[in-house]
Design a protein around this nucleic acid. Structure first.
Lengths: 337, 337
DNA sequence: ATGAAAGCGCTAACAT
DNA sequence: ATGTTAGCGCTTTCAT
């Protein structure tokens, strides 16, 4: 029952532990015969190197950590799980050790980003769900720990960024609403503190501008990515301004709320009001009317983030392309057709 | 940048590393004044104990690992994420170190369960998605590593089990179909190798028996929890036997397939054929007709599993209740109303 | 090609 | 109440 260590293997093989270690680390200066023998013995006794020990004594052992901030999981938003899946698959395919963590704003206050990482010997981090108001955000500007942010950007050569090209995607989405004849497009946005909200709002403006439609800041609400808040706000907007003929929403969840609001006010969708979401959640295909959206690829986020963080670790300070965009697709369904 | 260690704190404080260690481990034999002083200095220099080192030198450091087998994540089945969430929250609330891993049948063949765990110094394991045909399954019968299985049972005092009371739940669900007047109820089951399938099938039988309905083994199919396979099988069943007036499905996903099959054959739901699913996935509320189901609580699975595995670690060989059931609810929606 | 030995950062006896 | 020291299992010089 007690764990078998490198010593047991060495004793069995009649060699020193140094030799066994070299075998397991693929050093070249080992005779083929002993290499074979050691591997066989190791297999027989069921030995495999202890990771904690390896981490302690070696500078090479790499583990990359995926950290979720504010993991408030609801079955409607499955992005986090897909990201996790993508990162995990990437690390496994490269034989890198993976670790998962979740933090909160509260926890960030208690322990710095650097501290959290050094405590756990992580060599690289992928961070999801951070807000610009979080303690980590400031700390990331000066960190030297290779880090990749999902859906957020920080100007630091050690910090990369993976996301959809939100500006372009939002612009495309709004343009498609315009192309179908809508002229008074309201934006149901998320939050000032979410970088993606800022980007998507910019795309919205650019689309209006490109179509020479007048900007109107009263046409933008912030519903904090909440379905119910979006519903209430949309209701108010529609009641106050009967010329609104479309909503561009910064998330599918909010779009669901907007649809409900419109229906409660007896508006026809998409004839009276078109609705466009953002994310591409599964539910969007099943609701009635089905939801037009910008579909993102969270699994690819994970894969790409894994790749980028490894580059950051392996060749630090080299000039990488620190911003990586993952393809998106504007999907037109019943809600805007 | 280089990590600050226990030595730095000791030097700063003018004490030995032993003292610092004792402070951080809450030993009582430290004067209040130095305790305070050390904590302050540690905070100033940004020290926090390295987990790998602690794990290595201590027998106490506990980390519990959540292992997913066959993590093929689709946004339709969000159970894994909820379980993860539940386990994570539990460990954090107790200050226990958490680790996440995923394995496959392939990987299980390369490395034994014990080996996988000793390599990572895990003190307890929560295992999800295992099949009775997996290598780990056999190994679990004799392991001494405290382990909790989700949706599966193994007879070993070191191995606990957390799940819905599947037999009772299935019985309730089928009984509700019977109560609403259905008499020829087909079961669309998952797989022989999934323990839950066996349990749910037993519940199905018990419900029929209780209602004195004749058993009929030709009324059971195995669609491997796949939506499309379920659709095809259901189609065949309905075509061959026009007296079928209900389907009890071992998962909501399969139920979705069955609904499609019935619709394609121009059967009215629920008038001609009632459909009952199992799981309580989000989608079920949104499809048309909305899906009747047995709603499970995967987040609670995670919490309960965390609790149980800690008990197993702390008081091994004591006689715990090794099987823990999490409450469920039979929800009747349009598909069986 | 292999052995010997010095750490990695920490905990836990054993001293005092 | 605190210092000293032997490991924990492994990697990595430095010898040979």
């Amino acid at each position: 029952m007690k764990a078998v260590t490198i010593k047991d293997v060495a004793k069995q093989a009649g060699v020193s532990i140094g030799t066994v270690s070299r075998v397991f680390n693929g050093y070249p200066d080992i005779s083929e015969s002993t290499r074979k023998r050691i591997f066989k013995i190791a297999k027989d006794v069921g030995y495999s190197p202890n990771l904690a020990a390896r981490t302690l004594s070696s500078k090479r052992q790499k583990t990359i950590a995926l950290i979720f901030n504010d993991l408030v999981y609801t079955p409607k938003t499955t992005m986090p799980m897909s990201i996790l899946n993508g990162v995990y698959d990437y690390t496994q395919s490269k034989g890198i050790e993976f670790a998962f963590y979740a933090v909160t704003t509260q926890k960030q206050k208690q322990k710095s980003f650097e501290q959290f990482c050094s405590e756990r010997n992580v060599s690289g981090v992928i961070l999801q769900g951070l807000h610009v108001t979080d303690p980590y955000y400031e700390q990331l500007k000066t960190t030297k720990i290779p880090t990749v942010l999902i859906d957020m950007y920080v100007d630091n050569p050690y910090v990369g960024s993976v996301s959809t090209d939100n500006v372009a995607a939002a612009k495309d989405a709004v343009s498609s609403l315009i192309k179908s004849g809508r002229k008074n497009i309201d934006m149901m946005n998320g939050s000032y503190n979410a970088t993606v909200s800022v980007w998507r709002e910019q795309g919205y403006h650019e689309a209006l501008e490109a179509a020479e439609l007048p900007p109107n800041s009263s046409l933008i609400q912030y519903a904090n990515y909440d379905e119910q808040i979006a519903r209430l706000m949309a209701k108010q907007v529609i009641e106050q301004d009967s010329t609104i003929d479309a909503f561009f929403c910064a998330s599918d969840l909010m779009a669901l709320g907007v649809i409900k609001a419109a229906q409660e006010l007896n508006k026809r969708i998409p004839e009276d009001i078109a609705v466009m979401g953002f994310d591409g959640i599964e539910l969007g295909e099943y609701v009635t009317p089905s939801l037009s959206t910008v579909s993102q690829q969270p699994y690819q986020f994970g894969q790409e983030a894994g790749k980028l963080v490894m580059e950051l670790i392996d060749k630090p300070t080299l000039d990488h392309v620190l911003i990586r965009h993952v393809p998106y697709k504007v999907i037109t369904r019943e809600s805007s057709d």
